[in-house]
């Protein structure tokens, strides 16, 4: 194998994808015309690329998956603390991103003081009250489907999403924080009695989960 081949062969991949700088692209093209070994390598690699490109089909997203994502996003959008968004909007309106970040930083930095300070229960500024709630862990989709359609419901596609049904019949969803998502996806607690600790989002049936246990 000639010296030229040694420099050209590592470039063949980039040449095929037209990713080399113009002069290198020309250099490789020139060499391929003269060298049978390198042009054979080029032919083979290009054939592999074309085989993949032409034969591996794009899949279509299943309808239930698309719907699931749509509804989970709507849910997440509605459940994030309104206070935070209102604040964010005020600042973004004036393009004061850094001012927003700073304000947020001050609030977040201040939280430990609020929570450990003289207050009788941990309480965060404007973000709901500290609660400990007990009830049954249920799947929110199953519950809603049951309500919608009294005569026998169809099982929903996809995994169950845990929520908390309290004695008064209300259903509480969990905000999708790290701990919240863990609880939502936890299939082992379904239909068991659980105790959830966290923050109740103001005026909403949502809990920002700090911890939970089966009772």
């Amino acid at each position: 194998m000639g010296k030229k081949c040694e420099t050209i062969q590592p470039l063949i991949t980039g040449f095929i994808d037209e990713e080399l700088p113009a002069d290198q692209q020309q250099d490789v093209a020139g060499h391929l015309e003269q060298c049978a070994t390198c042009s054979e390598l080029y032919r083979q690699e290009r054939a592999v690329k074309e085989a993949v490109r032409e034969n591996v089909r794009m899949a279509v997203t299943p309808v239930h998956l698309r719907q699931n994502i749509r509804s989970r996003i709507s849910e997440a959008a509605a459940s994030a603390p309104g206070f935070l968004k209102a604040l964010q909007q005020v600042f973004s309106a004036y393009k004061l991103k850094s001012a927003f970040a700073l304000t947020l930083l001050i609030i977040v930095a201040g939280m430990p003081y609020l929570r450990t300070g003289g207050l009788s229960s941990p309480h965060r500024a404007g973000q709901g009250e500290w609660i400990v709630m007990e009830g049954s862990a249920v799947c929110i989709d199953c519950e809603l489907l049951k309500q919608k359609n009294h005569e026998g419901h169809h099982p929903h596609p996809g995994a169950h999403r845990t929520a908390l049904r309290t004695k008064d019949g209300l259903i509480w969803s969990f905000l999708q924080t790290e701990q919240g998502i863990d609880l939502i996806n936890n299939q082992n607690v379904l239909n068991k009695k659980i105790r959830v600790r966290g923050y109740r989002l103001q005026d909403q049936k949502y809990i920002e989960v700090e911890g939970f246990e089966i009772i």
Partner: peptide, 16 residues
């Protein structure tokens, strides 16, 4: 099922 209260500030809601 608890109906979601419509007390959310309208500005916040529209940004959502």
């Amino acid at each position: 099922i608890g109906v979601m209260p419509i007390k959310l500030q309208e500005t916040a809601m529209s940004s959502v």
